[in-house]
């Protein structure tokens, strides 16, 4: 892989995070009124002495750029400020919930990647009725929003068939798994659709490609043709859509967390936003942006390692 490509991607990552952090920080000043009232949270009239203290702590009276750099510097050191609503450090609030979200997102991502690629590949290889069936079902899965799917799943698997708990995040590994299954499935279904469709198309295209004809003309065994030429070459687009899928799961995690009451960063952000707890919203937004960009960069780098032409095009 070209070193230049890696460096370009990494610097793009840094630039993206910086630009988004600027937007996240700046949003506080775009809202009408004194930013300090947002940081206090709530809509009641706050104490002027508290406001003055916040102005000092958050460097709100400094020029914008200085205040921003100060905030960013603190964030980089893991200090996201204090939530006046929860009366706790933002870092502490995030820490306990990040683990829940990580578990849910990982669970959903595994379901998306495994199910999506497997049924997409099977559909392309088998063709005929299997392919039609998979295409129809995945198109349906893509069309159903997560919150509708959440309600359906609760009704079916928690109320009608009492297989899974309706609420909470559970104790221990088995308990967590049991509690997170329904939210993870609700989150995953839409993205399974996307990953399966793209996998099917990519595998189809490779099956028809000339270089696969060459491999067959040389007597390469069919299983090797599929593995070394069809699946290997299809992995580029599959990887790309998987990255989008995982990012999408993270973005919609809040919906599932709210619907199933599992708690996590997503539901923390929703709560914080409704209570106008700006410090928490900023911190969680920044974390989401970083995770997003890191996932996308990883996908780009792995794609380039698999097919060097990607790196050549990208570096130009």
């Amino acid at each position: 892989m070209r070193l230049r490509f890696v460096l370009t991607r990494l610097s793009l990552l840094v630039v993206t995070v910086l630009v988004s952090s600027l937007a996240i920080y700046g949003a506080m000043f775009l809202t009408p009124g004194d930013p300090a009232t947002l940081l206090v949270g709530g809509s009641r009239d706050p104490d002027p002495a508290v406001l003055a203290q916040i102005h000092r702590e958050y460097h709100l009276d400094d020029p914008f750029i200085q205040g921003y750099l100060h905030w960013l510097g603190n964030c980089l050191q893991g200090d996201f400020g204090k939530s006046l609503v929860y009366r706790d450090s933002v870092a502490g609030l995030i820490g306990t919930r990040a683990a829940d979200t990580l578990a849910l997102v990982t669970y959903a991502a595994v379901i998306v990647l495994v199910t999506g690629t497997v049924i997409g590949t099977v559909a392309a290889l088998r063709g005929g009725r299997t392919e039609t069936l998979v295409t129809t079902l995945t198109a349906g899965a893509m069309a159903v929003p997560t919150f509708v799917m959440a309600v359906l799943l609760i009704w079916l698997f928690a109320v009608q068939l009492p297989w899974f708990p309706v609420y909470g995040s559970g104790e221990g590994f088995a308990g967590t798994l049991k509690h997170l299954t329904l939210p993870a499935v609700a989150l995953a279904l839409t993205w399974i659709g996307y990953v399966a469709q793209v996998t099917r198309t990519a595998v189809r295209a490779e099956l028809r490609s000339e270089h696969v004809e060459t491999a067959r003309s040389r007597g390469v065994p069919e299983h090797a043709v599929i593995r070394r030429h069809v699946l290997y070459n299809a992995s580029g687009p599959v990887l790309a859509v998987s990255g989008v899928g995982i990012a999408g799961v993270i973005a919609t995690a809040a919906v599932a967390e709210q619907a199933f009451g599992t708690g996590g960063l997503g539901s923390l952000m929703i709560e914080a936003a409704s209570k106008q707890d700006m410090a928490v919203v900023q911190a969680v937004s920044l974390i989401f942006v970083v995770v997003f960009v890191v996932i996308n960069t990883t996908v780009d780098l792995v794609s380039a390692a698999l097919d060097p032409r990607v790196a050549q095009k990208g570096a130009r």
Binding site: S209, E210, H211, E213, T214, A215, R216, S217, R218, G219, V220, R228, H229, Y232, N233, G236, L306, D307, R309
Partner: peptide, 22 residues
């Protein structure tokens, strides 16, 4: 075995007929 050892084909467009990723 026949394809692997008795007949071999040279195709028209090597760029399309050789796996570009390997």
């Amino acid at each position: 075995r026949f394809r692997a050892g008795e007949v071999a084909m040279v195709f028209q467009d090597p760029r399309a007929h050789i796996n570009p990723a390997r």
